[in-house]
Design a binder for these strands. Sequence first.
DNA 1: AAGACGTACAACCGCAGTATG
DNA 2: TCATACTGCGGTTGTACGTCT
Length: 367
Amino acid sequence: MGRSPCFDKVGLKKGPWTPEEDQKLLAFIEQHGHGSWRALPAKAGLQRCGKSCRLRWINYLRPDIKRGMFSLREEQTIIQLHALLGNKWSAIATHLPKRTDNEIKNYWNTHLKKRLSKMGIDPVTHKPKTDPLGSTTGNAKDAANLSHMAQWESARLEAEARFVRESKLVSNPPQNLQIAVGSSSSSSSSTSVPSLINTAFLAPPKTRPQCLEVLKAWQGEVTGLFTFKTDNLQSPTSTLNSMESMLPNGLINDNFVTNFPVPYKGGVEYCSGSDGKNKETLLDTTMGLNEMVAWSHQDPHKKENMNMEGNNYSDIMVWDSCNDHQQNSSIAAPCENLKETNYDGDYSSSSFEEYKNYWNSILNLES
DNA sequence: AAGACGTACAACCGCAGTATG
DNA sequence: TCATACTGCGGTTGTACGTCT
């Protein structure tokens, strides 16, 4: 045991990193790997302690991290897992590809916690704040069951996170997403991280977790931000109905706009060119992620099955709201707002159908 | 225009766990 | 078994920036 008093050392720089420092650190790690963090600063010519270098790398410079706004789905995941795990940010982070625990923690503290509070939900207990009975809707047995389940899940998720760390397993989102929404895909990923969500939430528990009430409220809160431009869509009368109103056709027809950044609303757009400029828009969000169909650019009537299990995802363009989408943008994103991805680890690229299934899987847990 | 205030986020700090000799 | 080095984690702080008065 013991800790290294690196910050006590004289002459080491503290505070914000400069671009030059970032460049030095990046260049060194790219060339040599980080190796021993303690030895790194001297080798890289940095007046920083190893700990500071490590944090900078992990939370900011690492190439495989996603920065920018959190998608609705990511928010849901955070809330869900926070209800189960509490402030176990690292465990939560294992379920949000490319997000760091620090970023999630900050996001929770600055956004989600406040929003839950405004919704009348205690962000610590995930229960409604004002309850004349002094408890939530569940009875003592439910609460006990919930507590038991939460403990069980907590232990399991942490074990899973540890396994992932130890095995340096890189999750495979396309496959895992299919699993998470209950696809029939055969899976060897019983140890993959998202499979936990699958097993945790698709296998109906005896009682409905309290956190689901929070999610339901969250869903209503967020979908309530949608405004419909025309009347030809079902008017949302309840949170669940409003969710159903967000059907792909409505999205495709551009019948409503949002006043907040929405994660991924249209499914997948297939572009004929890798630069996306010859985009032939095609959204078919009525299909699951593993059964999407692409329209040929040359012949829009010709459909070609897209083998999502295949390797060629280079032509798939998805709207990366986290990086490109700004607030107050309309749902019909211009092509410039589309970002190319090889579909490797982009959580926001799930289809609406998959998104809907995700919600259904959570909200239909009542036994 | 300028100071006060609030917000968001990067970074710091210290504790705890693990690895190693 | 123990001491030390190292890493991971979560709470907290510092600061830049935007908004308000």
